[in-house]
Every structure is written in structure tokens, then in C-alpha cells.
Amino acid sequence: MEESSEPQLDAKSKVTSQLIDFEWKLGMAVSSDSCRSLKYPYVAVMLKVADHSGQVKNKSFEMTIPQFQNFYRQFKEIAAIIETV
């Protein structure tokens, strides 16, 4: 049996994207039309990602501070695990 290409070991590699860049901004919402006294900090993130065809796209989202802290904690866990694998 002949195989002309690399066997597909990771079935997910077709759908996963690669991170090219991670840009962030820490913002403070001060006041708005519905709330004069917002005083609400948030983390805005812009991810530059490349899909399997190499096309680069920007994906942005915002996080509250507790969400950011969870995001950070998850990355620390990943880093700890990936180091031991």
C-alpha cells in the first residue's frame, strides 16, 4: 500500500490555527450613556491567527478582569504541563 502524503496523525490540524501575534490593551470604561459611573477595567485582545491555508486573520475579543485572570491561570497550567510532556 502506497502513501503519497504524510499520514494525518492529528485529525485536528486541518481546523486549528496558528497564533502569529497576540496584541493586548488594558482599557478602563469610565462613563457611558446608560451609566455615568462605570469605572470598569477590561482587557481587549487582538489575536493574529493563520489558518491551515496560511491565511491570516484578526480575531478580537474583550475580557473582564476575572475572565483575564482565569485566562492567565489556564495558560500557566498549560505551560506547566507542556514542560513535563
Partner: peptide, 17 residues
């Protein structure tokens, strides 16, 4: 959004965070 990271990339992101 599904992303793949190797160890280097994880550490880069970690530094930014």
C-alpha cells in the same frame, strides 16, 4: 477559534499575559 501552540508559543503568550 481553535488554536495550536507549541511550548515556545505558549511561553511567548505567557510573557504577554
Amino acid at each position: 477559534l481553535c488554536l495550536e501552540f507549541d511550548e515556545v508559543k505558549v511561553n511567548q503568550v505567557l510573557k504577554k499575559l
